[in-house]
Amino acid sequence: MFLDAIKQFLRYSQKKSLWVFHVNTGSCNGCDIEILALFSSKYDAERFGIKLVGSPKHADILLVTGPVTTKSRDPLLRAYDMMPKPKAVVSVGVCSLSGGVFAKSYNVLGPVDNFIPVHVYIGGCSAHPNMILEGLLRAAQILCEEEELWSF
């Protein structure tokens, strides 16, 4: 009973504290600029406990922008493997969803979910900061409630 209450609190903390690692796998930088805007005074993602971290080993959420290219596939997989469980992936922008304008390019291998499991998809070219924020909060909900993510 007591242990369950502690466990519930720790899971709730996971929802209130989201550390995000951002990977650009070949985007045009449009979505990256919107992600930077997310942490500015206007949108202030930090009020929800969201923080950009520099190391995938600290991260809870992998924020991927752009289609996966031949050069970026291995770094993406390595960053995903390095993240401690429970973890979720948020794919930002139409390029990471389907390839967008870069689809069928000679060096584009495909959308992000061909390589790693994606939990939240955010469309748009480029995605609006409000949408990215909503996507991150959905990912927090999934991280907190999805039993499958906690089986390790």
Binding site: K16, S41, E46, R47, M82, P86
Partner: peptide, 27 residues
């Protein structure tokens, strides 16, 4: 955050951060 005209995280944010890390896997 308030000095930068942002709302900022709650004052209890460090406790959430720390307790979250306790349940995470180690890589």
């Amino acid at each position: 955050a308030r000095m930068q005209l942002r709302k900022g995280p709650p004052v209890t944010q460090p406790f959430y951060d720390l307790s979250k890390l306790l349940l995470k896997n180690i890589t």
